[in-house]
């Protein structure tokens, strides 16, 4: 088991390296001298030669690209992404400030989506090709087609402008949470509903289900005790994979509702040209995705020994 874990963990290293290269290079598309820009952003004055020189040495910008990259990487793996260009804080501080706010939005969305996706998915699969299934399928297509920022604005128009029921903006109280969560759920749930339906249908087409039905088991038991139970494993895997949306998962929703989470932070940093923050967010979101992948794989291996010996 340990060997399997070690092997899988080693396998993700090149991928993480690749992500780090992509995120680090973002800075190097910058023409001319980043040091000059940092001086301007930080001190709000025309950069003088000596200030630029000072920053250049302070930030290690005078070293060759490869050296800078390894410096950055060796710090990044320890969670140190340097200092923000526009604020007197470390990048990590800036990110950690926003993380709980993003988490609130994400977990609320996640919880609600999981529950309803399961319900809708099961209904859809059980009533395959009936009217209700078609509705669910159309919904799952609409969910990925309707832009969340438009849906958000429409909800604002209905609930804030017309009905004066809910605030269009703001953070951290329950009433502020409702519209963004609703908006995000619409698409988040759609993808999951579709997956639940597909997994359950696949399970229902297997031989043991036919056997169960043949021996006269009530359909309820067939679906819930047998098929759904087995289908739950891919479903749970898939759901846990989507935990990576925790970091910059809902940029558009956050922007529409001015939710001050990591998605908004990404957009703000892009506009402020605070590239270390952008780098860090790109890197972290990639790493989180890979890590989730790894964890899910390992869990699988724990449950199903075939996997760890098989390959």
């Amino acid at each position: 088991m340990l060997r399997y874990i070690a092997r899988r963990a080693l396998q993700i290293i090149p991928t993480i390296l690749g992500i780090s290269i992509i995120s680090f290079s973002l800075l190097y598309i910058f023409p001319g001298d980043p040091a000059e820009f940092i001086v301007e952003a930080r001190y709000g004055v025309e950069p003088t030669q000596e200030m630029v020189e000072k920053i250049r040495i302070e930030m290690g910008l005078d070293k060759p690209f490869v050296v800078q990259y390894f410096n950055w990487l060796s710090k990044a793996v320890r969670g140190d992404f340097g200092i923000s260009w526009t604020e007197d804080k470390t990048v990590m501080e800036v990110i950690l400030e926003r993380l709980p706010i993003s988490a609130e939005l994400f977990f609320a969305t996640f919880a609600i989506s999981v529950v309803f996706a399961l319900i809708l998915g099961v209904i859809s699969a059980v009533h395959k090709d009936k009217a209700i299934d078609h509705i669910c399928r159309i919904y799952s297509l609409l969910g990925i087609s309707i832009p969340s920022f438009w849906l958000g604005l429409i909800l604002i128009w209905i609930f804030s402008v017309q009905l004066h029921l809910l605030p269009a903006f703001g953070c951290c109280e329950l009433k502020h949470l409702i519209l963004p969560v609703l908006t995000w759920c619409f698409s988040f749930m759609a993808i999951k509903t579709r997956f639940v339906r597909a997994s359950l249908l696949e399970e229902l087409s297997k031989n043991y289900v036919i056997t169960a039905r043949a021996k006269g088991l009530p359909e309820k038991l067939v679906v819930f005790r047998h098929a759904l139970r087995n289908a739950l494993i891919p479903i749970i895997t898939y759901f846990s994979l989507s935990l990576h949306h925790l970091i910059v998962g809902s940029i558009m929703v956050e922007v529409v509702f001015s939710w001050p989470g990591l998605g908004s932070l990404l957009v703000e940093s892009v506009f402020k040209r605070d590239f270390p923050v952008v780098q860090a967010l790109v890197f972290l979101s990639g790493v989180l995705l890979i890590t989730m992948n790894l964890v899910v794989d390992l869990l699988y291996a724990v449950i199903d020994p075939r996997i760890r010996y098989g390959d």
Partner: peptide, 15 residues
């Protein structure tokens, strides 16, 4: 393994 839209925004933003 990098969320597409994140890279898109970062890249277009940088550009």
């Amino acid at each position: 393994s990098i969320p597409e839209i994140v890279v898109n925004i970062a890249l277009v933003g940088v550009f």
